[in-house]
Design a binder for these strands. Sequence first.
DNA 1: TCCACCTATGCAATAAGTTGCATATTTGTA
DNA 2: TACAAATATGCAACTTATTGCATAGGTGGA
Lengths: 195, 195
Amino acid sequence: MSLKHAILVLLDAEPGSGSDLVQRFRSGIGHFWNATHQQVYQELKALLAEDRVEFEVEAQETRPEKKVYRITRGGRRELRSWMGEPTKPPRVRDALLVKVFGTASDPAVMVAELDRRHALHAKQLEAYLELEQHWFAQTEAIRRQYRNPYLTLRRGIRYEREMLDWLEETKLLLQEDALPQRPALAGTGGKERKH
Amino acid sequence: MSLKHAILVLLDAEPGSGSDLVQRFRSGIGHFWNATHQQVYQELKALLAEDRVEFEVEAQETRPEKKVYRITRGGRRELRSWMGEPTKPPRVRDALLVKVFGTASDPAVMVAELDRRHALHAKQLEAYLELEQHWFAQTEAIRRQYRNPYLTLRRGIRYEREMLDWLEETKLLLQEDALPQRPALAGTGGKERKH
DNA sequence: TCCACCTATGCAATAAGTTGCATATTTGTA
DNA sequence: TACAAATATGCAACTTATTGCATAGGTGGA
């Protein structure tokens, strides 16, 4: 049950409304956790009932009212105790891989799907890289303040690059109906990896 | 609802029992989808009710009886129609990233957790690399037969390497309380990536 | 003015996934 | 012989996530 803690972590960094949180999940740091607006509102409600968060209504000139949530003392306590618990590697669940696994002799449909996904991941990477540029453009003090978020962004960038590489490689192999060749540095446990 | 289709894809490749499927998920191709045994048995039950699979009981000398499931005609039809649908990029949900995002000034606990995860991912990578070696050791005919599973394995290998790189980098930065430097090739959209 | 769209909030129903427990067989170990 | 461990199956309760719908105010364009 980490959506709860993801929200607490975000509110601990800066108070915000439900839709603020949704936007934070979608942009940049979205890579570190991900949720729909329904889930966020449900979880905020639950957190409110447990006294982990509180809110104030804030009127806006050009938009509907917001409920600006902030973390409470109890929320911080909860967060601290959760931070000490070990994490599990997330389960991998990508329908695209299921399809590649099961794709038949005719690769046309699959190649189209790989292209579609390539475009999506390329777009996501662009967004992450823009955020990275933005971070680098800040003063050292600001960069230090946002160092942890940047570290998670860095993971997002790596992840999308890795995905794009795999998509490109896989597309080529499926199109040419070719067998993959032994990669130059594979099989040694990764000690010689480039960093 | 892709666990259903992941199971159908596996059974389409080769019939098997519930615990066979769990083992396939855990080893190698486990990277392409992931489920606990409870989920697998529940889903097999549902698939049976929908006539997507059928089974025969198989006695074994040294172990309890198995129900060996195979995909039906209707199951293959279902699978074909599902293969044509577009996929969504999976949601990212890693509690470790939430913790890195929210970690406070004292990095000791976090560094220990990074080490713990590093060991887990290194072990998984080793397992994948062994499977890769096994694939390369086969005849060309066999390699061709298992090309698609190998392509998903390749994604697993890439994923774990990427994870390890990030873990190492992040550990160093947290330990030294240092600010990350601009990576040499970052910021251009990934066209110059190494493959 | 009407319509589409965006922000902002939320409810209700359903689907999917997790946790805890339970059973039976066999193999290996103390 | 007793006990732990692995295979093999499964139920029930609970939590989490998704899907579909709904409301309301403001923005911008045809």
